[in-house]
């Protein structure tokens, strides 16, 4: 098995999708802490975590999307739908796959806010709202992660029954 085949395998794709999403969540949590704190408030100290977070979510989206299109519909969805918890696909997966699409424009907007220098952030009184937007991205990421756990559990449950 070559490297490309390993990278395209189901466990690696799920691991990368989840791992990158966790980096995205942590980066926006880091930014939230920066925006709430009294430490370094340079423009760069805001821009770096926002960019890491947005880039991680974009990669997680692409890798998760590849897994979803190639494997989920053919192999995972039938196991869930024929199992004891078809609602895990009908409600949880359907909601998860679409609310993920909200994260990218939210994250890009936060990245653009972090392009503002300290004086503009203070003058426009954006610090608190930027913090709330970062926290919203964190909460959405955690919600999507919890949804993913339910879907994985339902697939294993479906396959076992």
């Amino acid at each position: 098995m070559d490297l490309i085949a390993i990278l395209q395998s189901k466990p690696v794709l799920i691991g990368l999708h989840l791992g990158l999403a966790i980096i995205g969540i942590d980066a926006f949590l880091w930014l939230f802490g920066k925006l709430r704190g009294h430490g370094s408030q340079s423009q760069k100290s805001h821009f770096v975590p926002a960019t890491i977070g947005a880039a991680s979510f974009v990669l997680s989206w692409i890798i998760g999307g590849y897994y979803y299109v190639v494997y989920y519909g053919a192999q995972v969805k039938p196991a869930i739908k024929s199992g004891l918890a078809p609602w895990a696909h009908n409600i949880v997966m359907e909601t998860k796959e679409h609310i993920f699409l909200f994260i990218i424009p939210l994250a890009m907007t936060v990245v653009f806010i972090t392009l503002l220098n300290k004086e503009n952030m203070e003058r426009l009184k954006l610090r608190r709202l930027a913090g709330y937007l970062s926290l919203t991205i964190v909460i959405l990421g955690l919600l999507i992660g919890a949804f993913g756990f339910i879907i994985s559990a339902a697939a294993r449950w479906g396959a076992a029954n």
Binding site: N90, E94, L106, T109, I113, L133
Partner: peptide, 26 residues
């Protein structure tokens, strides 16, 4: 600030709308 406030609420309402819709659909 109004634009960012609206964005925050549009994300919350979007999540609620899709969750309620797919629950009702199921």
């Amino acid at each position: 600030r109004q634009a960012l406030f609206l964005l925050l609420w549009s994300a919350v309402l979007g999540v609620i709308a899709l969750t309620v819709f797919y629950t009702g659909h199921h």
